[in-house]
Structures are given as structure tokens and as C-alpha cells.
């Protein structure tokens, strides 16, 4: 299943898809997108690469392994519920903080974004884990 076209496409598509998935993750709060879709895109980027170059080579090019990615996703998602507990609200209440208030760079960030990052990692990790296992067969 060696295809030059696919390989060249995958090589260039992978970074693009990863960046795109991050954008999708970030914009998810106000416009279509979010951690789930972003995670799927991120996973898809690596699956495309694996289809072109094989699983082994893909795994070598990764600096993490999918199991750890899934686990850290779950961990981050769980962590995002803690600040609310510390502030006396019930677990997983969204807590928000505005950076650079009243300036041109006003940025509102909150624990739901952290949670979404957890979802992103978990979905991407589990997708890669399953796909790599099956494709390796």
C-alpha cells in the first residue's frame, strides 16, 4: 500500500490538520467546533499519516504514546473540576477569569476550556489507540 501521492499529501496535511484541530478546539465555545471534533481531527491527521507510511513509522514520529494521551486527557478533564471545589462551588462549575481586562487584548478564559482540552486529548488518544491497534494487525 505504498502510494507516493498519499505520502506526500499526508506529510503536508498532518501539520495543517493539527493546527486546524487546535483552532477548532479554541473557537468551539462560540462557533461550531470544540474538543470532540478537534480531537477527532487531530487523530485523523495521524491516521492519515499511518495509512501512508505505516503504523510503526507513525508511532516513531510521535513523542507520546496514545495510551498516555488518553489518560492525560482524562486527568486534565478531571482537574478542570477542582478549581470550583476550591472556590466553594460544586464540582465542575465553570469558573472564569478575564485577562488583560479593559485593554485591546481582553481574554476571557475559564475551566470549561481546560475541560475541553481534556476531551480533545482523550478523544484523540483513544482514536489513535484503537486505529493503530487494528491497522497494525
Amino acid at each position: 500500500m505504498e502510494s507516493i501521492i498519499l505520502q506526500i499529501a499526508a506529510r503536508h496535511m498532518r501539520p495543517l490538520l493539527v493546527v486546524l484541530s487546535l483552532i477548532v478546539l479554541y473557537r468551539g465555545h462560540n462557533e461550531p467546533g470544540g474538543g470532540f471534533i478537534g480531537g477527532l481531527m487531530f487523530g485523523a491527521a495521524y491516521i492519515l499519516y499511518a495509512m501512508a507510511f505505516g503504523v510503526e513509522k507513525t508511532q516513531k514520529s510521535l513523542f507520546f504514546n496514545p495510551i498516555n494521551l488518553t489518560a492525560s486527557g482524562l486527568f486534565v478533564a478531571l482537574l478542570s473540576g477542582i478549581p470550583a471545589l476550591l472556590l466553594g462551588d460544586s464540582f465542575m462549575t465553570g469558573e472564569w477569569y478575564t485577562f488583560f481586562a479593559q485593554t485591546a487584548f481582553e481574554l476571557k478564559l475559564g475551566t470549561p476550556l481546560i475541560f475541553d482540552v481534556g476531551v480533545y486529548f482523550a478523544v484523540a488518544g483513544m482514536l489513535m489507540l484503537v486505529m493503530f491497534s487494528i491497522m497494525e494487525e
Binding site: 465555545h29 462557533e31 474538543g35 470532540f36 478542570s80 472564569w96 470549561p112 475541560f115
Partner: peptide
């Protein structure tokens, strides 16, 4: 929840658990 994307707000805030 300071979000305009209802689907996502439900997923990550209202129904985060």
C-alpha cells in the same frame, strides 16, 4: 457560561460531568 455555541456549552459546562 459565556459561550454562544450551545452544543459545546452543554457538553463542557452544563453537562460536563
Amino acid at each position: 457560561a459565556y459561550g454562544r455555541n450551545i452544543v459545546n456549552v452543554i457538553l463542557v459546562d452544563f453537562r460536563a460531568l
